[in-house]
Simulated scan of single mutants.
Amino acid sequence: MAEEVIRVEDFSFKYRQTKKYALKHLDFAIKKGEFVCVIGQNGSGKSTLASALVGLVPQYFVGNLHGRILIEGHDTQHTSISELSTMIGLVFQNPFNQLSYTAGTVAEELAYGLCNHGVPREEMVERVDRIARIMRIDHIIDKNPLELSGGQVQRVALGSSLIMEPEIVVLDECTTQLDPMGSEEIFDIVKNLNADGMTVVMADHDMERVARCADCVIVLDRGEIVAQGSPNEVFSQPDLREHGVEPPDFLKIALALKEAGVKVDRLPVTEEPTIELVKEAIHS
């Protein structure tokens, strides 16, 4: 059985000078190597949860907090963000917020965190080269980060987290500003890292992608967990739309066919929305 790397225990948080809690009584655990997707409408608490997992809540974003979050057994309230960054990395929704704005080249931007941790130069060079190849940015390693396209900045932002060699990475809807091709390229990189054993927690708005790739789905609504389980379990719940979440398009097709009297009980929600799959389900 895989070990737990994240444990959230009765966690609630309210930002200073706000009346309502952004997160309310969250309880869940994530095992090593899992791919977990957090979904929910805007304002549901996804970004606050992402910040809490890496210690920015409450160490940077202060407020009222109850409960605790453990990352590999370390309480995020009592472990420095610097130490947490070697265990869990965060990629922001806006990649430009991830840049240090002190680096003249992509290589220097990638090495920024390593410098702060006193990593020896030889190891630093090796890590920069390796991450640049993984992120497919080795051809722009000498360019100024401010001269890059949005997709290239997103790769640099992800690389700046991965270069710290965390076992967990948190992605806060980090593909929303990319075109479909760029989004899939980033997602393919993340999926490959997960296949190699990295634990991934991803807030996402693409339900087809979530249904296809997640091991576990957590649905947030107004700061509370309203559904949790496998994609099949979550997307099969009839009240999902009431929480501001639309099911994948192919599930909508299946539901429409059911309403028309066509039997499609064998259509799994974790599959791609292909006509062939729908036909197979109809004739089974």
Rank of each mutant, 00 (worst) to 15 (best):
G244V: 02
D249K: 13
T86D: 10
E167Q: 15
K46W: 00
G159E: 03
T199Y: 03
F61M: 08
E4A: 11
S47D: 02
R68Y: 01
D204K: 08
L251C: 05
V119Y: 06
E167C: 12
D27P: 06
G113T: 09
I140V: 14
M181V: 15
G63N: 07
I253R: 10
N144I: 04
H78A: 13
L70P: 08
V153R: 07
C174N: 13
M181I: 14
P58I: 05
C174K: 03
L178W: 04
E259W: 08
N42A: 10
S47L: 00
I69A: 03
E184N: 12
H25F: 12
E147C: 13
L114G: 02
V234R: 00
C115S: 14
I141P: 01
G73I: 05
I30R: 02
E208T: 09
N64A: 13
V91M: 09
Q154M: 05
R209V: 09
A29H: 09
S160A: 13
V245E: 01
P231C: 01
F187I: 14
H205A: 07
M124F: 02
I253H: 10
R241C: 10
L70H: 08
Y15D: 03
N116Q: 13
V170G: 00
L162E: 09
A103M: 07
A22L: 05
K279D: 11
M1N: 12
F61Y: 15
R212T: 08
E173W: 00
A103D: 07
D265H: 11
V153H: 00
E185F: 08
L277V: 05
H139C: 03
V57T: 10
T48M: 02
K14E: 12
Y21D: 14
P248F: 00
T175L: 08
T86R: 15
S236T: 12
C216N: 14
T274G: 10
E280G: 03
G244L: 03
C37K: 03
S44Y: 04
N116D: 04
E126Q: 13
P248S: 01
L178I: 04
P273L: 09
K24G: 01
T48R: 01
Q177W: 06
I30C: 00
V200A: 05
D249F: 12
L277R: 12
R241W: 10
I137N: 02
E9Q: 15
E3H: 10
H243P: 03
R155E: 05
V156P: 01
I225P: 05
A211P: 01
L90C: 08
I71F: 09
R136K: 15
K252L: 15
A281Y: 03
A203F: 06
M202I: 09
I186F: 08
A203N: 09
P238S: 11
S51A: 15
L53W: 04
G104Q: 07
R68W: 00
G73A: 06
I137M: 02
S236G: 14
R266P: 06
I39A: 00
Q59V: 02
K32E: 13
G244C: 06
F11S: 04
L162W: 10
S149A: 06
V190C: 03
G55H: 06
M1E: 11
G67R: 00
P238Y: 09
N232T: 14
Q154V: 07
S284T: 12
V54Y: 00
I71Q: 09
H66Y: 11
C115M: 14
R130L: 10
G33I: 06
V91L: 03
L70A: 09
